[in-house]
Amino acid sequence: MSERVKFFPGREIRSRSIDEVLASEYAADLKYSWASGAAMSRFLIELKNGRIIARKCNKCKRILLPPRIFCEDCFRETDGWFYVKDTGTVNTYSISYVAADASRLKEPLFVAVINIEGATEGMGFLHLLGEVSEKELKVGMRVGAVWKPEAERIGSILDIRYFKPI
């Protein structure tokens, strides 16, 4: 560095020496009950019925999924409900070997953004892929929803177990 910058401050604690300093520990378990809102409530109820529902905007003509009560582009209220198919194409995918806390998973998860048929091109959501081998995974592959049996559905994104190739 030039003469004006001679020293960069900071004292590192290496992982093996964390117990040598006076660190204090705290834990919190924050509980929430999130309102689903008007659009998502209906979406979840329809999942329970085994169907996927979107909202349409009559101004830009888009079929919006996930459904919302406003069009973020036209910035107006959306105009109505629209059932879309439970099939789609894989927009992109990845293979997760780690859990949310960065620990290793026993079995990797296949994760994908799926463009849903019937919605406007590029409208999709995140879900899991199943009944497929790592080698078969492809961007652009056609997939369909594998639903839980009706009795097990509760109105959750997990009412769809995963999507599988069709």
Binding site: E25, A27, K31, S33, S36, I45, S156
Partner: peptide, 28 residues
């Protein structure tokens, strides 16, 4: 958007965020 009038048409999602921290006391 039509108004929701039936209670069973309203949903919510319950979950929790467990977090743990270990703080250094700092130089001072």
């Amino acid at each position: 958007m039509e108004r929701i009038t039936e209670g069973d048409q309203i949903r919510r999602w319950n979950d929790h965020i467990p977090l743990q921290w270990k703080y250094t006391a700092g130089v001072a």
